[in-house]
């Protein structure tokens, strides 16, 4: 019994220690963000890796979600003659919830894994130490560009995801389910408020920072060669995804509780 309690206590201390270290890394990054030099080239590179390269998979996922959501909503709503609300449901679901969350999960799996693996490899091959020996701050050079890229690109990807999902919903409703296009568009725009879109984008900003901080932290603190890089990458993706889902609940409470 005591050994079990010891194990749980030990684990809890480990987790708290890591949360503290990640917070410290984030606060260091914030402090150095406002000190020169700014590595614009690295920020642009990371925006490409995190954002531009994620566009195809985000679009495919979101289009598929929009199509399925419209189809499911239609068949469900038909039971109580509310088919004309499909456009509203698709638009609200995507902008408030599915757009930012799916984008976050995709970026965590794709770019977050790459981020942790790249930084992890740099750590175990002493490239991060080499940066320090060349009098370059590794947090400034490696982590701040990733933070900026996450913060900027997640909302942009979410806008794409929202748009393509709504277009997909429109397409399936109008072309396949024979919904009236005028009513569909009116229902979509009538109930969609700016707060729905901006709330969703705010969520995306938070997810972007979470992914960058977690994946950078895991990569930056990798130990133990190739096995360590593998562990860091898996850990980074799993923790990012869990944090996205948990924070999504609290953000929804905060932003949309009316």
């Amino acid at each position: 019994m005591i050994s079990w309690l010891e194990k749980i206590g030990h684990r809890a201390i480990e987790v708290l220690k890591k949360v503290g270290e990640a917070s410290l890394l984030f606060s260091q990054a914030l402090r150095w963000t406002f000190m020169p030099p700014v590595y614009f080239k690295n920020i642009i590179q990371q925006m490409e890796v995190i954002g531009v390269q994620s566009i195809p998979v985000v679009l495919i996922t979101s289009l598929s979600t929009g199509l399925v959501l419209a189809l499911q909503s239609y068949t469900g709503f038909k039971r109580f003659h509310a088919e004309n609300l499909v456009g509203t449901v698709v638009a609200l679901s995507l902008t408030r919830e599915l757009g930012p969350v799916l984008t976050g999960l995709i970026v965590a799996g794709r770019a977050g894994a790459a981020m942790a693996a790249e930084l992890g490899t740099m750590r175990v091959t002493e490239q991060i130490d080499a940066l320090s020996t060349l009098a370059v701050n590794p947090v400034k050079y490696l982590i701040i560009p990733r933070l900026f890229a996450g913060l900027i690109m997640l909302p942009i990807l979410t806008v794409f995801a929202d748009m393509i999902g709504i277009v997909g919903g429109y397409f399936i409703s109008v072309q396949y389910l024979q919904a009236n296009p005028v009513i569909y568009i009116r229902r979509t725009t009538e109930f969609l408020e700016a707060n729905d879109i901006f709330g969703g984008l705010l969520k995306a900003c938070v997810f972007g920072i979470l992914i960058s901080v977690v994946c950078s932290y895991k990569g930056f603190n990798t130990e133990g060669g190739a096995v360590g890089v593998g562990k860091a990458t898996t850990g980074a993706v799993v923790i990012s995804m869990i944090l996205i889902l948990v924070s999504d609940y609290f953000l929804t409470m905060l932003l949309f509780k009316q």
Partner: peptide, 10 residues
């Protein structure tokens, strides 16, 4: 500093 594995930025 010269690192054991050279630590070149790949």
């Amino acid at each position: 500093m010269l690192f054991q594995g050279a630590a070149l930025f790949d």
